[in-house]
Write a protein that binds this DNA or RNA. Structure first.
Length: 391
RNA sequence: GGCGGCAUAGCCAAGUGGCUAAGGCGACGGUCUGCAAAACCGUUAUUCCCGGGUUCAAAUCCCGGUGCCGCCUCCA
């Protein structure tokens, strides 16, 4: 299999060929303090298909997806519910992992936790302080945005625009320790009751962004091919990662950025604060995992979409159709794929166009030729991750 | 204000210069059934937000306009 893949790159706003035979993929994972909703499932299923497709094409992919297990959200939730933060994180992560397993998403090679990489985090922070890009104040360390003119190049927001905006909205930082409202924290001093680790600046804990720089470079090297996540992470998270990493190594951090669109419910972005979430575990109790995957994959990974309950009906029907038509088709027939899989694979190779691929799949399944159905079965299992055996 | 995206039937949506504008949901008609549901068959856009332009030919390309949406230190 040739394995051409043209993937949209947020850094260039264009589809670009991903050509590496061996590559690293880092996807920003969850902060484990609440239940997995459909938006998480959409993002991680998209990257799951990306990984499956690349491997199907004979590429070697090292897939890393982190767990940000120390963070304001976790501590806040732990405090308000009276649960130990570590226990909360473990429990919520276990639920997330179970949802992913039921969805038939492959586990990443590495699922690093922020708390397991404090030495790496400190090393980067120290180096940034040493090189003058970060400064310490009262036990906190900040990245100084002004010292890095390229800051914000992924989101294409100019420094001035960001600053104007911040001032306009009276959104100036509550943090008097910052030299600039846009500076972001690398290390924060311990507050009462919070977990902490020793550092050159005293007891404290990592800031938000830094853990992803530390973990991605630890497992994939200073420069790697692909970095992904939801498009709500472009700014500030991914821009901050670039700033930290490139100033630490002096090398380009990531070649290709891939971002998934947001899932809405009732015309609003699905979010914890609005309470309009559709939970993966609840959906999986109602419909087969294959149906939920088909529902998710019927939307292109980059476009935002609104969840409509009636989509469940269509997804279930397609699932039934595929199962009936492909029940006894041999999924290991390579020649059938060669002969009949071209249109499907072409759609997948074109910026992971799963809606189009699904159309091709349906056509193959409905076709009268047995080899076509074998190709459909093989591609559905191996590229789309459908599991015809699950209930 | 900056950046990005989208406008195609009741709804979701494919389409990236040329056969009769995919498909799905819904609706309606039919077959089946004691009735209903399910399943299956059929019908459902002379037209692609508006105005210009390019072309033998545009939903598709160009210019202008209008409308909607997302992000902008909680966020997949």
């Amino acid at each position: 299999m040739n394995g051409e893949l043209r993937l949209y790159n947020t850094a260039s706003l264009q589809k670009e060929t991903v050509g590496e035979r061996e590559l690293g993929l880092y996807v920003c994972g969850v902060t484990p303090y609440d239940t997995t909703h459909l938006g998480h499932a959409f993002t991680y299923t998209a990257f799951d298909v990306l990984v499956r497709y690349l491997r199907f094409c004979g590429r070697r992919v090292t897939y890393v997806r982190n767990i940000t297990d120390i963070d304001d959200d976790v501590l806040l939730r732990a405090h308000s519910t009276g649960v130990d933060w570590k226990e909360l994180g473990d429990r919520e992560y276990a639920k997330f992992a179970e949802d992913m397993r039921r969805l038939n998403n492959l586990p990443p090679e590495v699922e690093p936790r922020a708390t397991g990489h404090i030495p790496e985090i400190l090393r980067i922070t120290e180096e940034l302080v040493r090189s003058g890009l970060a400064y310490e104040k009262d036990g906190c360390v900040y990245f100084e945005v002004k010292k890095y003119p390229q800051f914000g190049r992924l989101c294409r927001l100019s420094y001035v625009a960001q600053l104007d905006l911040a001032n306009e909205r009276g959104n100036f930082p509550a943090d008097p320790l910052k030299r600039d409202p846009l500076d972001f924290v690398l290390w924060q001093a311990k507050k009462d009751g919070e977990p902490s680790w020793p550092s050159p600046w005293g007891e404290g804990r990592p800031g938000w962004h830094i853990e992803c720089s530390a973990m991605s470079m630890r497992y994939l090297g200073d420069s790697f091919a692909l970095h992904g996540g939801g498009d709500d992470l472009i700014f500030p998270h991914h821009d901050a990662e670039i700033a930290q990493s490139e100033n630490f190594t002096g090398k380009p951090f990531v070649r290709h950025w891939a971002h998934t669109g947001m899932v809405f419910c009732g015309r609003h972005k699905m979010s914890k604060s609005l309470g309009n979430m559709v939970f993966v575990s609840e959906l999986l109790d109602k419909i087969p995992a294959d149906a939920l995957r088909l529902l998710l994959l019927s939307h292109h990974y980059r476009s935002a979409w609104n969840f409509e309950p009636r989509e469940l009906i269509a997804a279930r029907r397609l699932t039934r159709l595929l199962r009936e038509r492909l029940a006894d088709a041999d999924p290991e027939d390579e020649s059938a794929i060669e002969e009949h899989g071209a249109a499907f694979l072409e759609a997948t190779a074109d910026d992971l166009d799963t809606p189009r691929a699904l159309l091709e799949l349906r056509e193959m399944a409905e076709g009268g030729v047995a080899a076509e159905r074998r190709a459909a079965r093989a591609l559905a299992e191996r590229v789309l991750g459908l599991n015809f055996d699950l209930k």
